[in-house]
Design a protein around this nucleic acid. Structure first.
Lengths: 235, 235
DNA sequence: ATATGTGAAAAGTTTCACAGCC
DNA sequence: GGCTGTGAAACTTTTCACATAT
């Protein structure tokens, strides 16, 4: 959804002033969702000892079209060498810069239930530069007990922790009933991005909060649909 | 991505023979990803006592355009009443039929690590008609112990369980290293759909296996990008 | 010879705008 | 009055195809 205020002149459609002349004003959302997948494959390739890779090989690993890979990357610059391909290390670094994961991010977890506990120990977050610096819950029973090497703290400490530690991102793993209220509180506390596991819409209309939703039941329903409708969808 | 074998005649592009003349041959992928979200909102509305809803209200809850909601639904039939809106119960049932969740699905979980354990207890699955009927792991330590009300079984029992119980779906929560091998084994055992949490591509080129991927680290990276690039993406 | 980067075409998706029904 | 269902337009994304570079 594009905010459509003042979009009536059909020419200057946004703030980004187009860098060199070849890149689009906006990066396609679809491209963004694939960028992290490219990085994942590159990391795997590097671990297996490779140094160079071609767009077609990346594409094949992910079930995409080679020209799509090239175009996605070309949104951000020219990273390849004609006739040769892409240098794996160089491309990895470039993608990390694009994603903003060339530095580490402090993250808090809100909700220390089953899912929250599992997420707190998820190695993949750490491996990509996300550092868990706080865990919050509102259950008196849990507060004070340890989760990994962090003490579970009361939600009341949220504001002070966010202020003291430089935290921008939160993983929201609370029950649906409290998710909207907690999200609002996170925003007020200064959190700018939420990875939301609660099965409700927490993004508010006029908010500058960025939300990425992961609804596990929704994904399973999509799977059921895909299984039942093999050969009937567009992809 | 559509498997493009034998798609060279340009006319009969699929199996579905177009129902009444107004629906497209294929359902847009984008529509499918929203269907379960509509259902989620409807369930919530119903719980709050509502009986009717309008496309605009559903859209607002999800941050979409009202006409998109109407068009999505119209892919499957006419569920609304002009001047009135949609009957919540009726629409819920219709969407469940579309998604294939108007009946219950047996699901197995493979991988009883942190994430697997959390997923095994996730209430949302059960609430949408997904029943966990088996848990598998290859760690000798875990085999035989209980997870919820199920015993963790050896991966060696996989084939017999899939055959005895009618299981079509699997949740794959094993480490990246073993994910591809396990997925292949699941397919051979007769599983037709996998919800894959391992951060690797398990979908094989010529396979009829349906895979839906959930890569938690990828989602967090997408969030980081979105936070850094506010106002620069297409949505 | 091989593989990138990219105009241009094709395909897919969203939004507009309004006829049709309540 | 109000809201759905849907052609047609607008827009976005993907794919083709080839000039260009090594």
């Amino acid at each position: 959804m594009m905010p459509k205020a003042d979009s009536n002149d059909g020419e200057a459609r946004g703030a980004r002033p187009r860098a060199g002349g070849t890149q689009p004003n906006y990066v396609p959302v679809a491209t963004v969702t694939r960028l992290a997948l490219y990085l994942r494959e590159l990391q795997q390739l590097q671990r297996s000892g490779a140094q160079r890779i071609q767009s077609g090989a990346i594409a094949k690993r992910l079930g995409l079209n080679d020209s799509q890979v090239r175009r996605d990357l070309s949104c951000f610059g020219q990273f390849g060498q004609r006739g040769v391909g892409y240098d794996i290390t160089g491309l990895m670094k470039a993608i990390q810069v694009i994603l903003g994961t060339d530095r580490s991010w402090n993250v808090i977890l809100v909700g220390a239930g089953n899912l929250g506990r599992a997420l707190s120990g998820y190695r993949g977050f750490d491996q990509q530069g996300f550092r868990l610096v706080g865990v919050f819950d509102c259950s008196e029973e849990k507060i004070g007990s340890k989760l990994g090497n962090l003490f579970i703290r009361s939600l009341d400490d949220l504001e002070s922790v966010v202020e003291t530690t430089k935290v921008e991102l939160a993983i929201l793993a609370v029950p649906a009933e409290s998710a909207i209220a907690v999200a609002q509180r996170l925003e007020i506390a200064g959190i700018t991005g939420i990875l939301n596991f609660a099965p409700v819409t927490v993004r508010r209309p006029n908010s500058s909060l960025t939300v990425v939703d992961v609804d596990l039941a929704v994904e399973l329903q999509r799977l059921a649909f895909a299984v039942v409708n093999k050969n009937k969808t567009t992809d």
